[in-house]
Design a protein around this nucleic acid. Sequence first.
DNA 1: CGTGTAAGGAATTCTGACACG
DNA 2: CGTGTAAGGAATTCTGACACG
Lengths: 99, 99
Amino acid sequence: MNNFKEKKVITIGTVSELTGLSERQIRYYEERKLISPERTKGGTRKYSFEDVEKLVLISEKMDKGMGTFEIRKEDKKAKQKDLHEMLKGQINAAFHIRK
Amino acid sequence: MNNFKEKKVITIGTVSELTGLSERQIRYYEERKLISPERTKGGTRKYSFEDVEKLVLISEKMDKGMGTFEIRKEDKKAKQKDLHEMLKGQINAAFHIRK
DNA sequence: CGTGTAAGGAATTCTGACACG
DNA sequence: CGTGTAAGGAATTCTGACACG
């Protein structure tokens, strides 16, 4: 019940205000697979606070001259690292249970 | 930076989905001073996750046959209690600093 | 009192495209 | 490549009112 940050509930206009990015930029970053908003039945995009945070990071990287392709690559690496940590944790847990 | 729950960013349609209440009900509870959404420049209402939680509680109380007036009274009492606790805490703190 | 609804208008968002570079 | 913009349409929201009870 406490995953507010991950709930997709914010419309693009509000995201634009929160991040300082234009709606055009936000939609473009979606096209480049950097974020994945949900949609209402009518087709309106809905973002989470997590998306907003991601967008701020993306914005900073773009300012540094990084391209969307590299940003996506970095993002993937980060996710794999997370997955790695998770698996490590589970393996450890299993190990401790066994002994 | 971590007050997601209090940020007014959700539109009424989404709040309706999250709570199961009709937009009519949500607007009416505002009229009865049970919640206080913000507005965009254009006049669109924006709610926080906190508002959503409040609405769920309100909904339960309405189901029990409670009226909006009593609900508002209860809400006020709760707030005064919170304030009381807070002051008590500060007085305590001040006391401990003095001795 | 609390809520549904039809009405008309305004604000918001959407897509595909052209432009610049 | 990344972003601005004008274009036309569709989805969303708004208010004030009438209805029922």
